[in-house]
Design a protein around this nucleic acid. Structure first.
Ligand SMILES: [Zn+2]
Ligand SMILES: [Zn+2]
Lengths: 365, 365
DNA sequence: CAGGCATGCCTG
DNA sequence: CAGGCATGCCTG
């Protein structure tokens, strides 16, 4: 499924810190890195403030030991990468290929409401990149997963031992422990040897004439819920356009990797935007008339206790049953009630026009 | 928690096939094994039929290259170990220490109904062994987990990569990948180098005078649900008394390792033995009299639809609500109903002695 | 593919 | 500790 690497990049080493030689246009071969700022694949400065002075000219020849850009521009490797969107001078933006976004079968779906991508594990998901101005040749796009919550950001995101250590999906793959894969022959898997952060890097190639975007296919190789890995902790992916270790732009995408993207998206959206106000509170319209509500809001007196006496054993037993039914109603979840009613619409028994007719049968006494 | 090894056994090697030297009473030092039948810790013949001819005298000197017992008695290493109970000539039996068996807080609980041990992961669980006759000195007890279902038996049971590879609980432990641990200084961890089956072995020491049993503390180091490990597949533990590779007795215990032993036991028992027939079918006794049942068995006519007409809007609405309540009752789980009733006993409102009194209030028309 | 279950874990 | 949720997966 994921192609072996090739092209302009050398394969990265299977384990340990990442070393790559770039043999493209304007950058000469780099020696194996020991300082992270001299490698186009080392993690750039992610502590960069959200508004960056854009007073640097263009591309620096960063083959060591050259000019060193101001520290906050540099691709150093802070413990916590920045997750601030930064369009930069080239207008870097990402978006989701819109097809299948809404399909039920979709292996991924993006929610505009909660701004999050829901994706199945191991499937390929197209992400589109664009700029309003051509970035300098030799620019790359680094994708790096990080934990979203402050309590977790410091921890490096990688696959859980289970998924990283099985043969499945890992045979011949250069980076079995990486959460994020890119299905691009030129993809390079990086592991910063000071922070341990893992990322995948692809060269940025300008869109074909007439096209606004380039598309990369990414795959997420664990569930967000994976024990010993993400462990139910939300993540984001930081997409960064870089050139010689300089950050040219950054976009952040919230991602949830799960078995049922559709279901989980729906429940997230419901959580954030409750029930989109329907009907009057406490009543619902059924079959053309109002009826008393079941399982809805508490009213005054709901907790008061009344004594009801009744003559006759059978009547008592009937009422006892009814009393139980009524009181137990509060245990029924609202959506069970809704389903039940939806069903009733189809097989209505007691319709208003029946009122006044003689009862068909009464099991009296 | 688990003590380092020592005593009469040498520590086993951290990885690879198991090698042990036994220095006890009647057995001389064994060379590192290459043939599994020459090691007291190698897995014995588990393909042994359930009724074994008991015509062999007693203990064989099995230091290589000695007498070889008939093949079906030998501790060879078939792919699928026998899981047949076999009391043997010494009357080998196991049982659970009965304390806390019923407690809600219990970290483990044994169900006599479904004959299964429910135990939390990583906690220590006492198992008692007894014989009616003293087995020969130098006898050992091997505990080996196997999958219960035929589809899975061939697969070796071990910990999932997640749990086997984290530091947690594994620091200094000689067998981090073993599912089963025994909290006994003399415990030895064995891995059969032909089948790869893992087991833990302790010397059998006769009970103290006046005691019938010896007790060993075992811990289960994964959940039955662990992804990449047991993976929700039921297991059993085979406890085998062995002497010089001969099987003297065997007892099999179904085990489920889970987070909520009490809950899971209860639901298993419910599954196997529906509602343990209480009272008359369809009725239950409450507060000294019978009442119609709620949420119990289906009766004839339960699915028939009757038309009920009623004069007056309010009456209609009341009946509509009641109809809904009654029909929705079937959605309420029986134990919710039971809880509700238990509660009702304390705050009974409509008591039988009220019958016949004048209604206190009627909201007529 | 939807409904529902199984099951670890979080919360009150 | 019990109730309920979260979430992968099984079943129809
Ligand atoms: Zn995983
Ligand atoms: Zn495990």
């Amino acid at each position: 499924m994921l192609q072996p690497m090739g092209g302009r990049f050398e394969p990265c080493s299977r384990r340990g810190s990442f070393v790559a030689r770039f043999t493209g246009d304007r950058i000469t071969s780099l020696a194996p890195v020991s300082s992270s700022s001299s490698n186009p694949y080392s993690s750039p400065d992610s502590a960069m403030p959200s508004s960056v002075p854009s007073d640097y000219s263009t591309d620096h020849g960063v083959t060591p030991p050259p000019y060193t850009p101001p520290p906050q521009m540099m691709a150093s490797t802070p413990t916590v990468p920045s997750n601030t969107d930064y369009m930069g001078d080239y207008g870097f933006e990402i978006s989701m290929a819109s097809s299948q976004t809404l399909s039920k079968t979709a292996t991924w779906t993006y929610s505009d409401l909660v701004k999050k991508l829901y994706v199945r594990m191991g499937v390929t998901c197209p992400i589109k990149f664009k700029t309003h101005t051509r970035p300098p040749p030799g620019s790359i796009i680094r994708a790096m997963p990080v934990f979203k919550r402050p309590e977790h950001v410091k921890e490096v995101v990688k696959r859980c031992p289970n998924h990283a250590s099985t043969k499945e999906n890992n045979e011949g793959h250069p980076a079995p422990a990486h959460l994020l894969r890119c299905e691009n022959v030129q993809a390079q898997y990086a592991e910063d040897h000071t922070t341990g952060r893992q990322s995948v890097v692809v060269p940025y190639e300008n869109p074909q004439v007439g096209t606004e975007y380039i598309t990369c296919l990414y795959a997420f190789m664990c569930f967000s819920s994976c024990v010993g890995g993400l462990n139910r902790r939300p993540i984001q992916v930081i997409f960064q356009m870089e050139k010689d270790g300089l950050v040219l732009g950054r976009r952040v995408l919230d991602v949830r990797i799960c078995a049922c993207p559709g279901r989980d998206r729906k429940s997230d959206e419901k959580r954030c935007h409750p029930p989109p106000k329907q009907m009057k509170r406490g009543f619902s319209k059924t079959a053309g008339f109002q009826m008393m509500s079941v399982g809805t809001k508490k009213r005054k007196g709901d907790d008061d206790v009344y004594t009801l006496t009744v003559r006759g054993r059978e009547n008592y037993e009937i009422l006892l049953k009814i009393k139980e039914s009524l009181e137990l109603m509060s245990y029924i979840p609202q959506n069970t009630v809704n389903q039940y009613r939806a069903q009733q619409h189809r097989q209505l028994v007691a319709v208003p026009d029946n009122i006044g007719k003689k009862p068909k049968k009464e099991n009296k006494k």
